[in-house]
Amino acid sequence: MFEARLVQGNLLKKVVDAVKDLVTDANFDCSSSGFTLQAMDNSHVSLVSLSLRSDGFEHFRCDRNMSMGMSLGNLAKILKCAGNDDIVTMKAADDGDTVTFMFESPKEDRVSDFELKLMDIDSEHLGIPDTDYAATVTLPAAEYQRICRDLSSIGDTVVISATKDGVKFSSSGDVGTANITVRQNTTADKKEEQVSIDLKEPVALTFALRYLNSFAKATPLASHVSLSMARDLPVMVDYQISDMGHLRFYLAPKIED
């Protein structure tokens, strides 16, 4: 059987809220090492990769590797019924066709359980190669969200270029053009405002803003987000989930005409 108890239950809610608009149905894979998900969006342009390590759960038991297909919309509906401070426990039998979510209030005065029907989902697992990225910028997650939102009002695509001067986000459209540059700032008073840039060589790539905007729905999960780029390769947008794992998005670049 599978059983996992997460004291910070709202973390699961944040994860599902972050991906449910990008991916409708997905398989959650459970093994003794943890709880993972890999799924592409419907257009197969981006890939979501979630990893929650077993040691991040208060209790984790998985006797046999299993894949649980879920509608993320339905899962979000169920998780919405959990209190913000509730402890969430997931349970599933090895051969069952449901997964149960149990919500316990911190004062232990309210317990509820919701059963979600599992579904058969044909999904392809992609191999994500280890990549030596040319540039990685780590910036406040809220700043990334703002850049994507602001540029979306100007154009449909963004050119992200990393040079020794900083990382520039440029967009253009009928309205005009916009450039936003973030520079390294590791001495900001507040840690949550720090920006760090790791540049091995300059790189510039073009991406659809629609997807980058969608990834920003993961903002509540982490104070910072990292964008890693290499020439002619998908960008990796990485939200670290403290003490547990990560939620990563990969987006294929656009090719200049």
Binding site: L126, T206, A208, Y250, A252
Partner: peptide
């Protein structure tokens, strides 16, 4: 859209 690559052309299927 035009010029948009698929993620599957970068990450091989297992």
């Amino acid at each position: 859209g035009a010029g948009q690559r698929n993620i599957t052309s970068f990450f091989g299927k297992h």
